[in-house]
Nucleic acid binder design. Structure first.
Lengths: 247, 247
DNA sequence: AATGTTATTCTCATACTGAGATTGTCTCAG
DNA sequence: CTGAGACAATCTCAGTATGAGAATAACATT
């Protein structure tokens, strides 16, 4: 039997039925804090609970494509293509994680600059940006997925220029520092941060411009920068050591 | 309709059939080089080609459990529990990656110290450790998965004590350096490496013992160490900067 | 005009890194 | 048995990075 004969006689139903979904941890910075996009489930199971945007993959649809579609579809946010960074996070397949059937979920992590309020899509009764430090009860094992996504995002800030994806087209060093402080949840030394950012090759490049005016509470006009061409930060920008995480 | 009524009437077949597999990138150090475990496929499709060990998940089986089972089953290597580190790598779901049907594969990365030759299991016509720098043609998109696994392994050596998982119960600093040099593929400065390893808290701890004799080509007896209790290396042991990867 | 805020730049002490050299122990070839 | 070479372990030294604090100056608000 050669390969084409084999394929002609192949019956997909000989393998156990598993559903595959994608779930998206979409993060943004709003109102001074880190927020995650959640939808209120309009259907069973877990109707009424908040959940990550996501759903079943479609035939012929690639995984990242499904993640982007779910994000756009369930939130009404469209045309995200340019501004949103999206990457695979992890997969979850504990047998009883969905009461309906065996569901394996591939999670994706998305970062975006301050985005408008979402509007509810078809499956979602409601959609909103929730502060990550004040979360409602989540459906399925989405609390675990979200925790994983947050940790990944915090880590990626260290060695990639991802922070610029949370900022606008142009930004000041202070705004960039605000991104780090918000995502990491720690205050950073302004002077050292400034020195560090400018010393990492390719992280930011100057636009030659400054802000139109000083800050609302005073201070000089800040120089404006845009994202540089580096894909990795070298040397990395490390978080203050967390002794408890080492052992 | 409440949740239990909903579940009672739920029909899993309303969703498109997708098969879920796990594939394992199992790495070890043998014969002075980094090697990956490959099996020669005994069945269609891609019969005769080499592939990563893996297969369909079973009902009621968790993902990591499936990965461990496939590794043991298709290679004859059993009782791996204690000595093998295993972690999730990534998922692959391009629609046409398997000619039979839609297959989503969750890949796992496994590290182990020098292991014995595998013996072929049921599905595998043959199984062997292949040097990662001299690979045969691989089935499906396994070349991509393997490349991903190698990159992950190289990165994890930097900030986790993973290298000790490639060494035996006790090891010398030089042996540990050999692990880094083999996986990273670069020579390291012996003196600096030695200083660095001993300065990272919890990476290794002394056994008080030394090797029975000097090296085969001379040199004093080396002190023996065992893995310490650190889970993260701080400060990290960074690879020499690779300029081309930064931009 | 005084006061407070903030961007930016410095200083300085400490820590870490890469490169090279030194010391002393061991194996192997003759 | 001896000399040559290999190698573990330690040290030196210069260059670079980091943390903490301070100084300077431009701006806002009162």
């Amino acid at each position: 039997m050669n390969e084409s004969e084999f394929l002609a006689g192949y019956d997909p139903r000989m393998y156990p039925a598993v559903a595959v979904t994608v779930d998206v941890v979409a993060l943004t910075i709003r109102g001074g804090g880190l927020r995650v996009l959640l939808i209120r489930r309009g259907e069973q199971p877990h109707a009424g609970l908040w959940a990550l945007p996501g759903g079943f993959i479609r035939p012929g649809e690639d995984l990242p494509q499904a993640a982007a579609r779910e994000l756009a579809e369930e939130t009404g946010l469209s045309g995200l293509g340019d501004r949103v960074h999206i990457e695979q996070l992890a997969s979850y397949g504990t047998p009883d994680r969905d009461p309906r059937m065996r569901v394996v979920s591939i999670s994706y992590l998305a970062f975006a600059p301050d985005l408008p309020d979402p509007r509810a899509g078809t499956d979602a009764a409601d959609a909103a940006w929730h502060p990550v430090d004040k979360l409602p009860e989540l459906a399925f094992d989405h609390d675990r997925i979200l925790a994983h996504g947050l940790e990944r995002a915090r880590g990626k800030l260290e060695y990639t220029p991802l922070a610029t994806a949370f900022a606008g087209e142009t930004f000041t060093i202070s705004e960039l520092r605000g991104v780090y402080e918000t995502v990491w949840g720690v205050p950073l030394h302004a002077g050292n941060f400034h020195r560090k950012i400018l010393s990492v090759p390719g992280f930011v490049e100057s636009t030659g411009e400054t802000t139109e005016s000083g800050g609302v509470r005073g201070g000089p006009r800040a120089k404006l920068y845009r994202a540089g061409d580096a894909r990795l930060l070298h040397p990395a920008l490390l978080r203050p050591a967390r002794e408890e995480q080492i052992r």
